[in-house]
């Protein structure tokens, strides 16, 4: 597992390096570069930030400071299941923050983070266009309206059961061979 992550990181850095060449070494390019990385890889890793700093000749902490100021950048790879909790006006009024908190507590991560096993990530979004269903959470491509704190546990459990079933299915397949 760790090994694949290493090569993954390497591939990511190689890709960024090749893209960086197209950007002039000007401070004004900092945000466009960060956006490019976010778009291609969906997050900014620590070594990616360092690489950008080096390219532009600024310190790593400066790049980090700029990147953390904006909501559009993530610092963790997205999880296999992406949980997005709506905190738009309607959802906020109907307790969206409590829903978010429940997901955070259940998974032991904060919003904009990813669990260590990379199964889940949590994000907050601002209005997904179905306010009548508030509070809303979107998990992968499914909209869950009228969310309640008590539903959080069940949703996560559902994914865990599914994962185990998959695993068992695989083992089964292997033992057959």
């Amino acid at each position: 597992m760790d090994h694949t992550r290493e090569t993954e990181e390497e591939a990511l850095l190689n890709d960024i390096a090749s893209m960086l060449a197209a950007f002039e070494k000007e401070r004004a390019n900092l945000i466009p570069i960060l956006q490019m990385i976010q778009e291609r890889h969906h997050y900014l890793s620590a070594s990616a930030l360092q690489m950008v700093a080096k390219h532009l000749g600024v310190s790593g902490c400066e790049v980090y400071g700029v990147a953390t100021f904006y909501n559009q950048f993530r610092f963790y790879p997205p999880g296999k299941h992406r949980i997005r909790v709506c905190l738009g006006t309607a959802c906020h009024l109907r307790g969206g923050d409590i829903i978010l908190e429940n997901f955070e507590r259940k998974l032991g991560i904060k919003e904009a983070e990813t669990t260590a096993d990379r199964e889940f990530s949590i994000d907050r979004v601002a209005c997904v266009g179905c306010c009548a269903l508030a509070p809303v959470a979107i998990i992968d491509d499914t909209v869950h309206g009228h969310m309640a704190p008590s539903k959080v546990e069940g949703l996560i459990l559902g994914f865990e059961i599914e994962k185990q079933r998959e695993k068992r299915g695989k083992q089964h397949g292997e033992s057959k061979q």
Binding site: L49, S59, Y64, G65, F69
Partner: peptide
């Protein structure tokens, strides 16, 4: 440098 924003703003030594 400063990192994050609003009430979460901190001084960071990143990198």
């Amino acid at each position: 440098s400063f990192a994050r924003r609003g009430l979460d703003t901190v001084i960071s030594f990143f990198g």
